[in-house]
Each structure stands twice: as C-alpha cells, then as structure tokens.
Design a protein around this nucleic acid. Structure first.
Lengths: 151, 151
DNA sequence: TTTTAATTGATATTGAGTATCAATAAGGAA
DNA sequence: TTCCTTATTGATACTCAATATCAATTAAAA
C-alpha cells in the first residue's frame, strides 16, 4: 500500500467469501487463486479439470458462493455451460467473441439511459436487464487475415 | 383471406419447416400446433410432457429445426433450460417476468442506435447482440397488491 | 486443547439433451 | 394406385453438467 488503495478495485475473491461469513479453507484458496491467475472467463468444468486436487462439488459450491457475493458474473451461453468472469466493473455488460469465446467487459452510459427510456414502453416494472455483445475480437480478426482458409 | 394478408405476420410453423424442404408429418404437425395454440414461451421438456404421444427426440429435433428456420427464438435462462418463443417481430428483444416467467417481445429503435454507437468503443467487430429485460409483469404486480404476503 | 459446526469430496443421482438404429411413413415415380 | 427410395420416428442408451448425500475432516471459537 504505497499509495491510496481506494482507486484500485480489489480483486480478492477469498476475501469476498470471508466477508460473507464463510471460512478460509485451502480448497477455497486454491479455487479463488486459480480464477484470479487465469484472468479469463471459464466454465465450471474447466476449473475442475485444472484443479483435480479439489473435489468437483467444492468447485461448484465455491463458484456459486462467488456469484452470490457478486464477485463473479455468470454468463448464459446458448448451447453450452455457463461461463464465469470476475466482476471488475460495477455494473457492466459483456462482449463475447463468437470465434474464440474470449469475454470482455464494458459499460456505456447510453445503455443505461436507454433502459430508463424503455420503462415507458414496457408493460410492467423493470427489475433488471442483461446484454451481451457478440464480436469477432481483434486477435481472431488478425489470425484470420494471416492464416485465412488454409491454416 | 378477406383482406390483404401482407399486414399480418403469418405464424405458420409447419410451413416454415416445409419451406426448408422438410416433410409434413403428423408428429411435426402435433408439435407446431401445440406451440401455436399455447402462445406462451415454453421449455422443451414442457412440450414433451404436453405431447406424450410424440417421442422426446422428435420434439427436440422439431424445435431445433424451427430455431434454425428463425421461426422460434431460443432464450438462454440462467439456472434453467432455455425457453422458446415464436418470433413474431423481425429483430427484437425479450422481456422476462422474474416472478412468473412470462416472456414478451419488443423492439426499440434506440437500442439499435446504441449498438451502432458502441462499435467505436468495442475492441473488435460486432457481429450480434442479445438483450433481455427482466420485469415484474402487470399481472404479477396486481396479484401482489391483492394477495400480498399472506396469500 | 477441546469442542462444535462448517466444510470437504467420493459417490450416487438427477435432468437436459443427443446418438443410435431398426421400424415406419412420406411423397415422387412408374 | 402401387412401388420405391429416403426422410422420419421413437425407444433406448448414452453423455454431460450439476446437485444431493453423508461420513470423514478441518477451521476457528472457547
């Protein structure tokens, strides 16, 4: 803590669990460290494969706790298991590369403004929303330009 | 066809299948009729239960064909099986009541405009998007006002 | 320490959805 | 109409994700 730490959003998942009154165990430490280290979005099964020393049930339970704590976002993937990504930005939306599956985050004030304007048109009370943008990420665009059809 | 039929969007699911070169069978007729009659969004398993005379595999296959044909929308539901609803509006988004699960459709030009403005901010090519609005529908609001906590 | 309750993880189970494949039905040709 | 080819069906077995069970273990408060 050399400088004021209020700026940086702490991505300390194990703390998020402790804050909920959960115990600090080696299994939970292994799961949260792995998630923090990877950085990318992941599926529950991927995590299980990467952490064979942690029981499958525990991996799933820990993920659920992190989602409940708001520390992980659960993204619904059509035709596939949901993916999880660390919530870095307070309220945000996701970009998902339809080629490689890379997940990004963004927030855009206009989106929120649109939501408010929609309230008039919609039959009922708005209680939330979800939005995903499907992209071809720059990496995939570059790969495509190089390799093209004959890999 | 008393008047010009161009106005009304035909919701003829069996025709959508025929247009794709698929045969008109009694099983497909049963599935599509049921979907049209219900009107509401549904899950694959619900349809299977309502149509015990049609094999489970056939129900799933028919749904898939209808989605491929663009006649059904497949909505990802977190913590649950995807729901399907008949696509009545060309490009649109969905409202989902978080109490009763009722699904509605809407389109809003501002949403599309926002999408275009996002292109500058996003790192890659936008190839699509999805948006769901979670609501408490008027029906549920009314039920709540009446019954309240002591059903 | 000791104690108590939370946690773990091997295993069984559930549920959604798909693959298989012999029997059947659709629909064009003769 | 009848025949023939091919699509379709549906019972069954299977895969995969995820949860329930529960005895053994471990965290952390006393």
């Amino acid at each position: 803590m050399t400088t004021d730490s209020a700026q940086k959003i702490e991505i300390n998942l194990i703390n998020a669990l402790e804050d909920r009154g959960l115990r600090k165990t080696s299994a939970r430490a292994a799961v949260t460290q792995r998630i923090e280290a990877a950085g990318d979005a992941f599926t529950a099964e991927q995590l299980c494969r990467e952490l064979p020393e942690v029981g499958r049930a525990t991996v799933y339970r820990t993920i659920r706790h992190l989602v409940d704590a708001g520390a992980l976002c659960k993204l619904p993937i059509l035709d596939g298991a949901p993916m999880y990504s660390v919530a870095r930005v307070e309220h945000h939306h996701h970009t998902i590369c339809s080629r490689c599956g890379a997940v990004g985050e963004f927030r855009h004030s206009t989106v929120e403004r649109v939501m408010r304007s929609l309230e008039k048109e919609i039959d009922g009370d708005i209680v939330g929303h979800r939005m995903e943008i499907f992209i071809t990420c720059n990496q995939c665009l570059a790969d495509n330009a190089k390799g093209d059809s004959h890999a």
